[in-house]
Computed example of a mutant assay.
Amino acid sequence: MLWFPTLSKSGFRSFIADNDEGSTGKWMVPIPVPDIGLIWEEIEDAAVEGRILAAKKSTHELVRIIGHNLACVYCSASDPDTVAETLRTLREIGVDGELKYKSDLATFDGREEYLYSSSEFETLLPRP
């Protein structure tokens, strides 16, 4: 098993549409080992409280393969507005650095490409 169960207040399920923007998707959030800043706890709390749609975290088996924890923070669709809003919440809870976004359609199709990079949205996000 590579992933712990998905956390969601709303009972999230992935949705695969016939295009990337209509499909659900996720911000890929690398988390160092150990998580000194405890960013996973912030993501977990946001999912349980409903501030983000859903999140899941890599298991120790995946950490051994990729060398760090990885969290997937889900969006209800992969359009720029929905994706930007979730990124805004991630920044508010303390997630920093460059992030990549992948649609669930791309995952389903086995494509390695990312739909967005967080740097594409930084000018839209409020400065702290």
Rank of each mutant, 00 (worst) to 15 (best):
P126N: 12
D18K: 13
V73H: 07
G11V: 14
W3K: 08
S10F: 14
P30L: 06
T107K: 12
P30F: 05
S119G: 13
E21T: 14
E113H: 03
E120Q: 15
I31N: 02
L2N: 14
L125E: 08
E44A: 12
R88A: 10
A71V: 04
L90Q: 03
T86P: 02
Y101S: 04
F15G: 05
E112I: 01
D18F: 11
S23W: 09
V95K: 04
T86S: 08
G11C: 15
N19H: 15
P128V: 12
E21S: 10
G50S: 11
P5Q: 08
Y114V: 02
P5V: 06
I31L: 09
L70I: 15
L99W: 01
F121M: 14
S119W: 13
A77V: 10
D104C: 02
A71P: 05
D35C: 04
I16W: 09
L62G: 00
S117K: 14
G97N: 11
G97K: 06
D18Q: 14
D81T: 09
C75Y: 05
M1Y: 04
S8T: 08
L53Q: 05
F4C: 05
C72L: 15
I43F: 02
L125P: 03
R64W: 06
E49W: 00
T123G: 08
I31S: 01
L7D: 06
D18E: 13
Y114T: 04
W40T: 01
H60W: 07
P30E: 10
S8R: 08
V83N: 06
L90P: 03
V29Y: 00
H68E: 09
S117P: 01
S10R: 14
D96H: 10
L53P: 00
L87W: 11
K100R: 14
S14L: 00
I31Q: 02
D35E: 09
V63E: 10
L7W: 04
P80Y: 10
E113G: 01
G11K: 15
A55M: 06
V73Q: 07
I52L: 05
S118I: 10
P126V: 12
Y116G: 03
F15W: 12
G37V: 02
R51S: 06
L105T: 01
W40Y: 10
F15V: 12
T86I: 08
D104Q: 08
D81S: 07
L125K: 09
R91H: 09
S8N: 10
A47G: 14
E120T: 08
K100L: 15
E21V: 14
E42R: 15
W40A: 01
T6C: 11
R111V: 00
G25I: 01
D20Y: 07
A77M: 11
S119N: 14
T59K: 01
